[in-house]
């Protein structure tokens, strides 16, 4: 039987898509569904005699009464808000700088990306040393050799939390910058020329031309950064282990503790599912905004 050209093309297309689809199904959909399945059961690894009884939404109602979980959720939201705001602002600045023509631009572009290229665990370890109370660089820069003034940044709930946010902003601003740079580069040069002829100031050019045109890129950077920040884990794991007094505990770390340290598979999965749904919600909101507000014009 001879297939039409269209049918053959379609078949070929699906064939090419299959590996990618399989990958997504095995490594994304299956774990999500399995987490959801686990979250509906009472599974405690150190009490194997319990078996795996179905417990309905018990884990979920327990989650919303768990003061540590709610505290971690609050911490996570604060973390997400501050880090994304600063990362986007800094990212914009970085992008504007490396978009200009100047000597050694290639070098600066490469240098800006270094924090992003360093594995998070390594970077976190570095920041832990920087904020060390005895030999940390932060203390040295602030107080020099006056060691009696040295402060234990990671021992104070407020500064420990700030330290983690600083580390994250340092680490990922350049990633936001890279996404925004891509947006900047598609803005045609003649728009600026025309503006200049019309007598627009630099600020007016930025407000009226650059910002509106780079907005889609900023929103995409925002989407990526929000989702990523929501899943923060490694920084906390390496720098503070959630301490002191849970000041830096975040949802993902709490969930990890529940599953891997305490063996509460069911309850820990409930936390994962919560994180998943919140991320999903955030991305839906963003995509709505990006999809309707901007690409239509």
């Amino acid at each position: 039987m001879q297939l039409s050209l269209q049918a053959r093309e379609r078949l070929f297309g699906y064939t090419l898509l299959t590996p990618c689809l399989l990958f997504v199904i095995i490594f994304a959909f299956y774990p999500i569904l399995y987490s959801f399945y686990l979250s509906l059961h009472k599974i405690i690894l150190s009490l194997p005699q319990l078996g795996q009884p179905f417990s309905g939404l018990d884990n979920y109602s327990a989650l919303f009464q768990d003061r540590i979980a709610l505290h971690s959720l609050r911490n996570t939201l604060i973390f997400v808000f501050f880090t994304t705001v600063f990362e986007i602002l800094l990212g914009l600045v970085i992008a504007l700088i490396i978009n200009r023509q100047f000597r050694g631009r290639g070098l600066v572009r490469a240098a800006v990306l270094i924090p992003w290229a360093v594995p998070t665990v390594v970077a976190s370890q570095m920041w832990r040393f920087i904020f060390n109370d005895k030999y940390g660089l932060a203390n040295f820069l602030l107080f020099g050799s006056d060691t009696s003034a040295y402060s234990a940044w990671l021992a104070n709930p407020v500064t420990a939390f700030a330290a983690i946010m600083i580390a994250d902003v340092w680490k990922t601003s350049s990633f936001a910058g890279l996404l925004i740079l891509a947006g900047l580069q598609v803005i045609p040069e003649d728009l600026y020329e025309a503006a200049q002829i019309d007598g627009a100031s630099r600020w007016q050019q930025f407000r009226r031309i650059t910002l509106p045109l780079v907005k889609p890129a900023i929103l995409i950077a925002l989407l990526f950064r929000t989702m990523d920040a929501f899943r923060v884990f490694d920084l906390v794991f390496v720098m503070t282990q959630g301490g002191p007094a849970d000041a830096t505990n975040v949802l993902q770390f709490y969930g990890y503790k529940k599953i891997f340290a305490e063996g509460l598979m069911g309850y820990g999965s409930t936390i994962s599912v919560l994180v998943f749904f919140i991320s999903l919600l955030i991305s839906i909101i963003y995509i709505r905004v990006i999809g309707t507000g901007l690409f239509k014009e």
Partner: peptide, 8 residues
């Protein structure tokens, strides 16, 4: 008697 840093 211990520095505050012992919390870390």
């Amino acid at each position: 008697i211990a520095p505050r840093g012992v919390l870390t």
